[in-house]
């Protein structure tokens, strides 16, 4: 079973670290994982994309060829990667304009707002996203995700990042019914 993730947004949102944490958590759970990225010259702003491929078996090609999960934190990212999706689901931030509509199911969640309002730190949106992706996909257990967060985030920020992960997992749990419904509707259509 090969599961592909594409995490997209703008530079500085920490999507690379999100991809690393997701991949590392999958490894913790005994799976194979490869994480790649593409990036522009900007350290902040510009577009940013990280990809994670997780599999029980060997991974010969490291990039996402047809993502099962697209995370789009900006409208630009949604338009760049969402509109070409033929399968899988798109998880966007609630602020993303779904215009034009995508061919695959979209679940919009308040990822950025959860970080900035509920946790008080916009920078941890990436760990909220990890919680969402991990929870929705089930590629890694919550415990493995927690361990990966602890291993990878800067010292002194563990608590905040773990809280962000838990918020993400909670968002995923709430969205699970929507996701299932979306996937089923999609399956019925195709």
């Amino acid at each position: 079973m090969r599961v592909e993730f594409r995490l997209s947004g703008s530079g500085g949102q920490g999507l690379l670290l999100a991809g690393i944490v997701l991949a590392e958590a999958a490894i913790q759970d005994g799976k194979n994982a490869v994480q790649t990225q593409s990036y522009g010259p900007e350290a902040r702003g510009g577009s940013s994309k990280a990809e994670v491929v997780i599999s029980d078996g060997d991974i010969d090609y490291p990039k996402a060829t047809a993502p099962d999960f697209l995370l789009a934190l900006t409208t630009d990212a949604y338009r760049s990667y969402g509109l070409s999706m033929k399968k899988g689901i798109i998880i966007t931030d609630s602020t993303v304009k779904l215009d034009p509509p995508a061919e695959v199911p979209v679940v919009a969640l308040p990822i950025l707002e959860t970080a900035s309002k509920k946790l008080g730190r916009a920078v941890v949106a990436n760990m909220v996203a990890v919680g969402v992706l991990g929870g929705v996909s089930g590629v890694a257990s919550p415990q493995a995700l927690r361990e990966a967060v602890l291993h990878r985030v800067p010292k002194g920020t563990e608590e905040l990042n773990l809280a962000a992960l838990e918020e993400g997992l909670a968002l995923a749990a709430h969205a699970q019914a929507d996701v299932r419904a979306a996937v089923q509707t999609d399956a019925a259509h195709s």
Binding site: A33, V34, Q35, I59
Partner: peptide, 9 residues
């Protein structure tokens, strides 16, 4: 660039 930046198990 791909192999240099890629993370793998």
């Amino acid at each position: 660039e791909v192999i240099g930046h890629m993370r793998e198990k």
